[in-house]
Amino acid sequence: MLTLHSIACSSESTQPLPLTKIDLHQQKIFLWLPQQPVPIEQALTLRLEVPENVTPELSQVEGVSMYMGTIPLMWQQLSPTEWQATLYLGACTDPKMEWRLTVPLRHELATVPQSVSYLFTSAAN
């Protein structure tokens, strides 16, 4: 019984958050992000779909509406075209925060940009 209580009180959510598919570049690059405003102080799973032979490099999330430094984001490959990263946004004094995700892309394709960005918001729980 004590073990069940410890699990129930854990801050980690066992329910996956609903994801929204976002077109980052001409139906070639897609981001799956929790519905906005995204929650703070919990692990958020992001997915990225890119063409084959395109690799997302070390990315960053930075506060737009308030300076919060930068949060590094490392992508792990799930398939030749799909990548995943975990993001953890901390709390700040602004209850509704605007963020910018910037993803540099390594490739040799003329039809794909060198980086993509996306603005999103978070809200205190």
Rank of each mutant, 00 (worst) to 15 (best):
M1P: 00
D23S: 10
V61W: 03
G90W: 05
T55D: 01
T45L: 11
Q76D: 03
S115A: 12
I7R: 12
Q42E: 15
W99P: 00
W75I: 06
S13C: 07
T55N: 10
Q26D: 15
E82C: 06
Q27D: 13
T93Q: 13
E12L: 14
P72G: 04
M74C: 04
H25Y: 15
L89Y: 08
N125F: 03
P113N: 03
T93E: 15
T93L: 13
E57S: 08
Q26A: 08
D23C: 15
Q114S: 11
K96Q: 14
I22Y: 00
N125I: 07
L17C: 01
L58C: 01
H5A: 09
Q76E: 10
S6M: 11
P51W: 05
I71H: 02
N53E: 14
Y88F: 15
Q42G: 05
T45I: 11
M74A: 15
S79Q: 10
M1W: 01
V38I: 11
S11Q: 10
L4I: 05
Y67N: 07
L4T: 02
Q26M: 00
N125M: 03
P37Y: 03
L17A: 06
P113E: 04
A43D: 13
T86R: 09
A85Q: 03
Q60I: 10
K96M: 12
P56K: 04
P34A: 04
V38K: 01
N53V: 11
V50T: 15
Y88S: 02
S13A: 09
A124H: 14
L73W: 02
M68C: 02
P80D: 10
A110C: 00
Q27I: 08
D23V: 12
W99M: 11
L44D: 01
T45N: 10
P72E: 05
R106L: 13
P80N: 06
T14A: 05
A8E: 14
Q15E: 06
L24N: 10
Y88P: 00
Q36L: 01
Q77W: 06
K21H: 11
E108A: 10
W99N: 04
A124L: 15
L89K: 08
Q42L: 14
S13D: 08
D94M: 14
E62F: 02
S115N: 11
T93G: 07
P18L: 11
G69F: 02
H107R: 14
T102Y: 07
T121P: 00
F30V: 08
T102H: 06
Y118K: 08
T86P: 07
A124R: 15
T102V: 11
Q15P: 01
M66R: 04
M97W: 12
N125K: 09
Q26Y: 03
Q60S: 13
V61L: 07
G63P: 12
A43V: 13
Q84A: 02
A124N: 14
Q114T: 13
V38H: 05
S115L: 14
T86Y: 06
V61T: 08
T93K: 13
G90Q: 13
P16Q: 05
C92K: 09
T20H: 11
E57C: 10
W32Y: 10
L46M: 00
M74D: 14
V112D: 07
P18K: 12
V61G: 02
V103G: 00
P51I: 11
L87P: 06
Q15H: 07
T55F: 13
I40W: 09
S13R: 15
Q77I: 03
P18Y: 04
L109M: 15
A91L: 12
T3D: 01
H107C: 09
K21Q: 09
